[in-house]
Write a protein that binds this DNA or RNA. Sequence first.
RNA 1: GGUCGAUUGGUCAAGCGGUUAAGACGUCGCCCUCUCACGGCGAAAACAAGGGUUCGAUUCCCUUAUCGACUGCCA
Length: 482
Amino acid sequence: MTPVKTRFAPSPTGRMHVGNLRTALYSYLIAKHAGGTFMLRIEDTDQERFVPEALDIIYQTLKDTGLEHDEGPDKDGGVGPYIQSERCRLGIYQKYADQLVEQGDAYYCFCSKERLEGLKRTVGGKEISAYDKHCLHLSKEEVQAKLAAGEPHVIRFNMPLEGTTTFHDEIYGNITVENAELDDLILIKSDGYPTYNFANVVDDHLMGITHVVRGNEYLSSTPKYNRIYEAFGWEIPTYVHCPLITNEEGQKLSKRSGHSSFEDLIDQGYLKEAVVNFVALLGWSPAGDREIYSLKELTEIFDYHHINKSPAVFDMTKLKWMNGEYIKAMSDEEFYPLAEPYLKKYVTGPYDLKKIAAMVRTRIQILPDIEEQVDFFNAVPDYDVELFSHKKSKSTVDSSRAILKDVLPLLENAASFDNDTLFDILKNYAAEKGYKVNTVMWPLRTAVSGKPATPAGATGLMEVLGRDESVARIQAALRKLG
RNA sequence: GGUCGAUUGGUCAAGCGGUUAAGACGUCGCCCUCUCACGGCGAAAACAAGGGUUCGAUUCCCUUAUCGACUGCCA
C-alpha cells in the first residue's frame, strides 16, 4: 500500500473559515493517523481575490492549531513548487492542457463574453448556462489563425455526451451522474492561469496525493474531475468529502455570523485547543462517550469512516462549555498568563491578580467572562439594600445591620487578614450568637462586593481586598443600612 | 428549472433488521456549598411523512416534503 498523503489547499483570500479549518484538521488527521504526509499547497490562481496577508493567516493558523505540515512552500518535499502561481509560471498547467488538446480531450475556445451571455438562460431566478461546444468544431487551421492573431481564448475540456460517470466517495458512497450533465469546463483561463478544477487534478496527481479531503460543495463537480483523470490515464485518488458546517439558522457560515473564522473565535476569547477539539467533533464522532481530546489523541483515534453525511450546526453554546472545560482543566499557573490581560484591564487596584485569577478560573467559560466576575474589585457597584435579604441564608436587612456592626471591630482587630483566620473568627462569632454561618457571611460578602454572585466567599474576597478596603466597604454598607 | 446530496430530542451525536432509541451541550429539579459557580444525582425532550420489502423496520427500497450544494474565465 502506498503511504497516505493528504493536502490542505486553501486560497489566500482572507481569514481561516472554520469549515476550512475543519477540512484542514480532517486532512491532517487522516494523514497522521496513517503515519502519512500532510502537505500544504497554496491555490492562488484567482488573481482577483488574492489577499497577500491571507498567506500569513494560513501559516499562523496552522501553527496555532498544531496542524503542522510536512511539506509546503516553506518545506520542500521534492514535488514543489507548492504555490500554484509559481507552478503556472513554470508552464506546468499549460503543458498538460496542451496534451489534452493534442489527444482531443480538450479544445481552444474563442467565444466572446457576449456570446456566452447569449447562452445563458434564467430558470427560477437563477442564471444557468451550459456551453454548446461551439469552438470544438473549429478546424486546426482556424484555431492556429486565431491563436496567431492573438485572440483571447480559454481551453475547455471536452466532456462526453453519452454514458454515465460513477465515482466513489468514502463518506457518501457511490455517486453516478449522466455525462450529458457535465459541462465543458474551462481548464485554462484567458489570463493563462488554470482554474481550480484543472489545477487541482494536475497538482494532486503530480504531488502524489492519495486522499483528497475537501468540503462537500465539490461533490457535484467530482465526476468532471474524474473525466480529467481518466483522460490522462491517472489513478483516481480516494475521495473524502466533508459535510457542511452551518450557523444556527442552518445557513452557510458567513463573515456576518461573527464567528465564521478561527481568528474571530480567538478574538472572542476562545482557546485554540478548544476550538480544534470542538470542530473535530462537528461532523465526526469517536467511539466512546468522551468529548475532550487533544490533537495528539485525535490523531490516534481518528477514523474517517465515522465522518457524518449531514451538515452540522455550529453551536456556540457547546463551544463555550468546551472552552470552560479546557480552562478548568488548566492549573492556576497555566491559566494566569491567559487571564492576566483581562485582569489588568478590569482590576486596577493594588490586588493580587494571581489570587483573583484562581478564584475566577472555574467560573468562566471564555476569557472575556472575567470582566463581570471581577468588576467589583475596583468599586462596589450601586446596589439595593434589599440585596441584604437572602432567604436561604436567613439573612435580612435588620440581621445584616446588626451582624455587620458586631463583626466590624472583630475584623479591625483580626490578628491576620487571611481567609482561614477570618473564617475562624466569623465562625466562632456565629456560634456564640447562635447564627448560621451563612447568616453572618451573606451580609459581609454583600457589603464588600455589592453583588449577588462573586468569585469567592466573603472571607476570600476580604483577604484579597485587604483590611483597610474591607473595613471601609463594611462601613459604607452600614451607612447604607442606616 | 436540472443534477447530486442530506433528514434521530432545541443543538452535537451513537445506532448499521429485533435496543426500555446511548452519551454530550442547553433547559428544569434536587444535593453539596460562606453567594454564584464547580462537582454529584435526576427529569423533560427525537427516528420528517406515506407506501412497500420482511416474522419484524430508525436501520433496506420507492414516493412526497423540507433543507443544502452544484449548475462561474470563484474556489
